[in-house]
């Protein structure tokens, strides 16, 4: 039995003007190694221009079902207000990503940030809301960019590099299969 390392949620940005989107999680002893694991697991292919990792324990989450049921969002009045990053699931379409980064809100706790997010970003379909303190986010450094770009040259990972459908059609017509 090994001691399981903490879980980090991973957010991937596909292009510099696009949102950071949750793609899954990794386990690591710290944020730096979480970024390294995240790159191996989630950036083998284009496109990736940056990654964020956030400790799972720093994130508060509510689904629309939980918000509708009025699951207690405890608003602590003791703390000072801080900045929170908020994310939401915006569609029921079949997709490979979960919640997208929406923006920041000011709130007194991470739980309060969830309610503030739903009240602030009213034009965003909040099927699920996530929030975390902005300082809980560790972003990949600029120096990682060449590493992400390297994936674009590995064309053999792309299904469109294999002309099997076309070749099978030619063989069925009685022509030579080789291109």
């Amino acid at each position: 039995m090994t001691d399981q390392w903490p879980r980090y949620e991973v957010f991937k940005q596909d292009r510099t003007d696009g949102p950071f989107r949750n793609v899954g999680s990794v386990h690591a002893p710290d944020a730096e190694l979480a970024l390294m694991n995240a790159r191996n697991v989630f950036a083998r292919r284009p496109a990736c221009v940056a990654l964020w990792v956030v400790p799972d324990a720093a994130i508060a989450r509510r689904t629309a079902e939980q918000l509708a049921a009025g699951d207690a969002v405890e608003i602590e009045d003791s703390g000072d207000s801080g900045r929170y990053a908020v994310f939401s699931k915006q569609s029921q379409r079949q997709t490979m990503t979960y919640v997208d980064y929406v923006g920041e809100v000011t709130a007194r706790s991470v739980e309060a940030a969830l309610q503030t997010a739903a009240d602030t970003f009213t034009d965003v379909p909040g099927i699920v809301w996530w929030a975390c303190p902005v300082e809980a986010i560790t972003a990949s450094p600029q120096s990682d960019l060449p590493g992400f770009e390297a994936a674009t040259s590995k064309l053999f990972r792309m299904p469109n590099q294999y002309h099997t459908v076309f070749t099978m059609q030619k063989i069925r017509r009685g022509e030579e299969g080789e291109e």
Binding site: V23, M96, R157, P159, Q161, Y162, T164, E176, G177, E178
Partner: peptide, 30 residues
């Protein structure tokens, strides 16, 4: 949701796994 999303990503990536194998069988057959 989490299982569906993992499957969407895996299917997108595995297209080439099948095709590289099929391509080799085609070449051997000829």
């Amino acid at each position: 949701g989490p299982y569906s999303r993992a499957m969407v990503r895996i299917c997108a990536e595995e297209g080439f796994h099948k095709k590289q194998g099929q391509e080799m069988i085609i070449r051997y057959s000829q």
